[in-house]
Amino acid sequence: MLKADTYAGRNKIKKQTTRPRFSLRSLADSDQFVGWVFSLPFLILWGWWFFYPFMESFVRSFQEVNFMDLSQGKFIGLQNYVLILHDPQFYQALGNSLKIVLIAVPVQTVLGLVMAILVNQKIKGKGLFRTIFFIPYITSQIALTTVAMMLFKENTFVTKFFTAFGMENVTWFASTKYALLFVTLLFIFQQVGFTMIVYLSALQEISKELYEASVIDGANAWQKFRFITVPMLKPVTFFVVSVGTILGFQIFDQIAAISRYGALGSPAGATSTVITYFYQHGIRYMNLGYGSAAVVIFFFIIMLITVLQKKLLDDKE
């Protein structure tokens, strides 16, 4: 933790005496002013290139839109929403998304933390190891999936290896049983590098004295981890978990790669997710109104989950 209490005492005394009059300096020292100035670049870009287009999509979700003329949408009320909520494929997609998130997020969070701790040790070649663990995150996911597809075919050594765990010797991504697991594993594989480097930078912020002090108090390795590392990493863990959830819902490239030459979510919808559902209807089938309604529903679902996570994990505020 950053420490500067040497100044803290002086600070309290001086605060009383320097009540500034209005000046540029006092502006630059005001929370209201600086808060807004610092937020403004983000807010402008956001309003322009996010909020405005998003509102256009929102309005469209109540319309039947002919893409030939986007301005001529026909208002049809909640019909798009009703249709989606009555579509069994939507629930299949939602169920698949939830499965991906429920498996991937805990695994990648724990694994990412373990790997961050490993590469934060004083060991030889840690720069190299960090780089290797980060490779899947920075490789094109389509390429990575293509390679994984070469490895998870029937009769390859990888597939045979997994038969030891009771899996069948079949092409994983062609099996309606295993395809979703295949996609989930690939997602974890990619995302764990991200989790690792976020934790790695958080570990740099934990003061060494805390550990040193705990050693004097007789703490063992596990106690240090449990009572110093884990609590200190709590805000970052909230970040990692909520981002993992969000990205888990957005997983697309891996599914697109295994569905090439066929319908998205192949085989037979086993890997369809809310995002592929949106993509098929909103973009492929050019049903912009319907697709936009799917976005709005999607948005409320993740919103709900994030609020829950915030309640559970982030007690800082």
């Binding site: 062609a174 309606t176 066929g262 192949s266 037979a268 098929q280």
Partner: peptide, 20 residues
């Protein structure tokens, strides 16, 4: 007329039968 929806559906149905 809904060609893409149709081709997707055809692949899905056949995969569900043959692979599923």
């Amino acid at each position: 007329e809904k060609t893409k929806m149709f081709t997707d559906k055809l692949s899905e149905e056949l995969e569900a039968k043959v692979l599923g």
